[in-house]
């Protein structure tokens, strides 16, 4: 355990190593560390920004969805109204048409009845004249009695 030149040699080596470490070892490692730190911080920043954007977009999407749902409901409501309206209209027109047809039929029937009545009346008056001729065996002046017969026929 002699103190000797080794002490000085060791001190010189130590000084050299520290100098070398300070000049060539420490700075690049520290720089890399700091750059990575910055990069990670930037990345985290970007991630949080992206999350915020995503939230915003989701909100927007929800809004749009809600609006479109409302619109769809409105359209449906309109369509339902329109359809009931159309059914109502159709029903009305059908009823009118029916009434018209019933009226036509009624008037036709009336006409038929009248015609039948006329015919019947004519036949009855002829039959009555013929009957009277047979009963009286004599000719009857058609002009003279015609009026009478017509009167009779009208009473039928």
């Amino acid at each position: 355990m002699n103190l000797n030149l080794t002490l000085i040699g060791q001190a010189i080596a130590f000084a050299f190593f520290v100098w070398f470490c300070m000049k060539f070892v420490w700075p690049p490692i520290m720089q890399a560390l700091q750059e990575r730190q910055k990069k990670i911080a930037d990345g985290l920043d970007a991630a949080s920004r992206a999350t915020r954007d995503l939230e915003l977009a989701q909100e927007q999407a929800n809004e749009t969805l809600r609006e479109s749902k409302e619109q769809a409901a409105e359209i449906l409501e309109q369509a339902r109204k329109r359809s009931t309206q159309m059914v109502e209209e159709a029903r009305d027109s059908a009823r009118l048409e029916g009434e018209r047809m019933i009226n036509n039929a009624k008037s036709e029937i009336e006409q038929e009845i009248n015609r039948a009545k006329e015919e019947l009346r004519a036949q009855v008056s002829r039959l009555a004249i013929e009957g009277a001729e047979r009963i009286l065996e004599a000719s009857i002046d058609e002009k003279q009695h015609g009026q009478l017969v017509d009167k009779l026929a009208k009473e039928l």
């Binding site: 355990m1 002699n2 103190l3 000797n4 080794t6 002490l7 000085i8 040699g9 060791q10 001190a11 080596a13 130590f14 000084a15």
Partner: peptide, 10 residues
């Protein structure tokens, strides 16, 4: 001891 004292004296 030279080595350690060399460093500690530095």
């Amino acid at each position: 001891v030279n080595a350690t004292l060399g460093m500690s004296l530095s």
